[in-house]
Amino acid sequence: MLLIHCPYCQEERPELEFRHAGEAHIARPTDMAALSDADFERFFFIRSNPKGIVFERWRHIHGCARFFNAARDTVSDRFLATYRAGDPKPALDGEGA
């Protein structure tokens, strides 16, 4: 069970309180009506799924209930950073986020 630092509760809390919510930094297009098929495909279906650092959304659903973002290394399963929804991707040491 992971410990996840909630940027709103400002402490590490057990994974049981959280729910994963998919890839982060995919903004819903503001002009949905005008979106081409290709753009919709990119927005809705295509995910990066890298080996290494992912930026992903979590919700502290059984805690403060906030959605937030995290940078996690899928190889080591280590959280590199968590930050509030809407904040830009953090610079990670040497990773060039």
Binding site: C9, R13, L16, E17, H62, G63, C64, A65
Partner: peptide
Amino acid sequence: ASRTMFGKAE
């Protein structure tokens, strides 16, 4: 005080 889990209940 905190919202949390107790077994399978919030």
